[in-house]
Protein backbone atom coordinates (compact mmCIF):
# COMPACT_ATOMS: atom_id res chain seq x y z
CA UNK A 1 0.00 0.00 0.00
CA UNK A 2 2.70 2.41 1.05
CA UNK A 3 4.74 1.63 -2.05
CA UNK A 4 1.76 2.28 -4.32
CA UNK A 5 1.19 5.57 -2.53
CA UNK A 6 4.81 6.58 -2.94
CA UNK A 7 4.75 5.65 -6.62
CA UNK A 8 1.58 7.67 -7.12
CA UNK A 9 3.08 10.64 -5.30
CA UNK A 10 6.28 10.56 -7.30
CA UNK A 11 4.26 10.27 -10.51
CA UNK A 12 2.32 13.38 -9.51
CA UNK A 13 5.57 15.15 -8.72
CA UNK A 14 7.04 14.33 -12.12
CA UNK A 15 3.89 15.41 -13.98
CA UNK A 16 3.77 18.59 -11.90
CA UNK A 17 7.42 19.37 -12.59
CA UNK A 18 6.85 18.75 -16.29
CA UNK A 19 3.93 21.19 -16.34
CA UNK A 20 6.07 23.80 -14.59
CA UNK A 21 8.86 23.36 -17.14
CA UNK A 22 6.36 23.79 -19.98
CA UNK A 23 5.22 27.05 -18.41
CA UNK A 24 8.81 28.23 -18.14
CA UNK A 25 9.38 27.46 -21.81
CA UNK A 26 6.38 29.60 -22.77
CA UNK A 27 7.60 32.61 -20.81
CA UNK A 28 11.11 32.18 -22.23
CA UNK A 29 9.68 32.10 -25.76
CA UNK A 30 7.84 35.33 -25.06
CA UNK A 31 11.14 36.87 -23.97
CA UNK A 32 12.25 36.93 -27.59
CA UNK A 33 9.08 38.44 -29.03
CA UNK A 34 9.70 42.14 -29.59
CA UNK A 35 7.93 44.40 -27.13
CA UNK A 36 4.47 45.39 -28.25
CA UNK A 37 4.16 48.47 -26.08
CA UNK A 38 4.96 51.91 -27.45
CA UNK A 39 7.40 54.45 -26.05
CA UNK A 40 4.51 56.77 -25.57
CA UNK A 41 5.41 60.43 -25.95
CA UNK A 42 7.97 59.62 -28.61
CA UNK A 43 5.91 57.00 -30.42
CA UNK A 44 2.20 57.49 -30.79
CA UNK A 45 -0.44 55.15 -32.04
CA UNK A 46 -2.07 56.51 -35.19
CA UNK A 47 -5.73 57.29 -34.75
CA UNK A 48 -8.25 55.57 -36.98
CA UNK A 49 -10.55 57.36 -39.43
CA UNK A 50 -13.52 56.99 -37.14
CA UNK A 51 -11.74 57.99 -33.96
CA UNK A 52 -13.79 60.18 -31.67
CA UNK A 53 -11.71 62.92 -30.11
CA UNK A 54 -12.81 66.38 -29.06
CA UNK A 55 -15.89 67.93 -30.60
CA UNK A 56 -15.08 70.44 -33.33
CA UNK A 57 -17.16 72.65 -35.60
CA UNK A 58 -17.24 74.05 -39.13
CA UNK A 59 -19.15 77.24 -38.23
CA UNK A 60 -19.95 78.07 -41.85
CA UNK A 61 -21.79 74.76 -42.30
CA UNK A 62 -23.95 75.06 -39.21
CA UNK A 63 -27.63 75.66 -39.91
CA UNK A 64 -28.55 76.10 -36.22
CA UNK A 65 -31.00 73.22 -36.09
CA UNK A 66 -30.23 72.42 -32.46
CA UNK A 67 -30.23 68.66 -33.20
CA UNK A 68 -26.85 68.14 -31.55
CA UNK A 69 -27.92 69.96 -28.41
CA UNK A 70 -31.06 67.90 -28.19
CA UNK A 71 -29.40 64.53 -28.67
CA UNK A 72 -26.47 65.10 -26.35
CA UNK A 73 -27.11 62.76 -23.38
CA UNK A 74 -25.00 64.82 -20.99
CA UNK A 75 -25.96 68.31 -22.20
CA UNK A 76 -22.41 69.45 -22.86
CA UNK A 77 -23.27 71.63 -25.86
CA UNK A 78 -24.91 75.04 -25.73
CA UNK A 79 -25.90 77.15 -28.71
CA UNK A 80 -27.31 80.66 -28.94
CA UNK A 81 -28.30 82.52 -32.09
CA UNK A 82 -29.53 85.96 -33.12
CA UNK A 83 -31.54 87.30 -36.06
CA UNK A 84 -29.62 89.38 -38.59
CA UNK A 85 -31.29 90.47 -41.83
CA UNK A 86 -33.98 87.83 -41.39
CA UNK A 87 -31.29 85.17 -41.16
CA UNK A 88 -30.33 83.11 -38.17
CA UNK A 89 -26.74 83.80 -37.19
CA UNK A 90 -24.89 81.71 -34.71
CA UNK A 91 -23.70 83.82 -31.82
CA UNK A 92 -22.49 81.28 -29.32
CA UNK A 93 -21.44 77.64 -29.50
CA UNK A 94 -20.09 76.41 -26.20
CA UNK A 95 -18.71 72.95 -25.58
CA UNK A 96 -18.09 71.69 -22.07
CA UNK A 97 -15.39 69.09 -22.47
CA UNK A 98 -15.59 68.13 -18.81
CA UNK A 99 -19.06 66.67 -19.25
CA UNK A 100 -18.57 65.17 -22.70
CA UNK A 101 -18.79 61.37 -22.82
CA UNK A 102 -17.42 61.11 -26.37
CA UNK A 103 -20.40 59.14 -27.62
CA UNK A 104 -20.28 60.80 -31.04
CA UNK A 105 -24.03 61.09 -31.40
CA UNK A 106 -23.89 64.83 -32.17
CA UNK A 107 -21.63 64.04 -35.07
CA UNK A 108 -24.02 61.41 -36.38
CA UNK A 109 -27.16 63.48 -35.99
CA UNK A 110 -25.83 66.63 -37.67
CA UNK A 111 -27.56 67.03 -41.05
CA UNK A 112 -24.76 69.11 -42.61
CA UNK A 113 -21.75 67.50 -40.92
CA UNK A 114 -20.93 70.84 -39.36
CA UNK A 115 -20.15 69.31 -35.99
CA UNK A 116 -17.55 66.59 -36.03
CA UNK A 117 -14.99 64.99 -33.77
CA UNK A 118 -11.31 65.62 -34.36
CA UNK A 119 -8.33 63.40 -33.61
CA UNK A 120 -7.05 65.08 -30.45
CA UNK A 121 -6.81 62.61 -27.62
CA UNK A 122 -4.33 64.19 -25.20
CA UNK A 123 -6.95 66.34 -23.60
CA UNK A 124 -5.69 67.04 -20.08
CA UNK A 125 -5.49 70.66 -19.03
CA UNK A 126 -4.20 72.35 -15.90
CA UNK A 127 -6.96 74.91 -15.71
CA UNK A 128 -10.58 73.97 -15.31
CA UNK A 129 -11.72 77.01 -17.30
CA UNK A 130 -10.00 75.58 -20.32
CA UNK A 131 -12.47 72.70 -20.41
CA UNK A 132 -15.19 75.18 -21.41
CA UNK A 133 -14.44 75.66 -25.05
CA UNK A 134 -15.87 78.20 -27.41
CA UNK A 135 -16.24 76.27 -30.65
CA UNK A 136 -16.58 79.46 -32.72
CA UNK A 137 -13.03 80.46 -31.86
CA UNK A 138 -10.86 79.22 -34.74
CA UNK A 139 -7.74 78.86 -32.59
CA UNK A 140 -9.38 76.90 -29.79
CA UNK A 141 -7.38 73.69 -30.17
CA UNK A 142 -3.99 75.16 -31.04
CA UNK A 143 -2.87 74.75 -27.47
CA UNK A 144 -3.74 71.05 -27.43
CA UNK A 145 -1.97 70.43 -30.70
CA UNK A 146 1.21 72.21 -29.68
CA UNK A 147 1.65 71.63 -25.99
CA UNK A 148 1.31 67.87 -25.92
CA UNK A 149 4.20 66.40 -23.96
CA UNK A 150 7.41 66.48 -25.90
Amino acid sequence: MVIIKIIKLSKDLVIGAWSLIKGLVITLKNCFIPAITLQYPAQKQPMTDRFRGLVDLHPEKCIICYQCVKICPVACLAIAHKQENNKKVISEFKYNMELCCFCGMCQQVCPTSAIYMNKIYEISVYDRDKTHINLLNPGKYIEWLNTSIK
Binding site: L28, N30, I33
Partner: peptide, 11 residues
Amino acid sequence: SAHIQSRFGPM
Protein backbone atom coordinates in the same frame (compact mmCIF):
# COMPACT_ATOMS: atom_id res chain seq x y z
CA SER B 1 9.97 40.84 -16.19
CA ALA B 2 9.39 43.40 -18.91
CA HIS B 3 10.80 41.20 -21.63
CA ILE B 4 8.87 38.19 -20.42
CA GLN B 5 5.71 40.28 -20.60
CA SER B 6 6.63 41.79 -24.00
CA ARG B 7 7.21 45.24 -22.60
CA PHE B 8 10.28 47.48 -22.53
CA GLY B 9 10.64 48.08 -18.82
CA PRO B 10 12.54 51.17 -17.66
CA MET B 11 13.90 53.01 -20.68
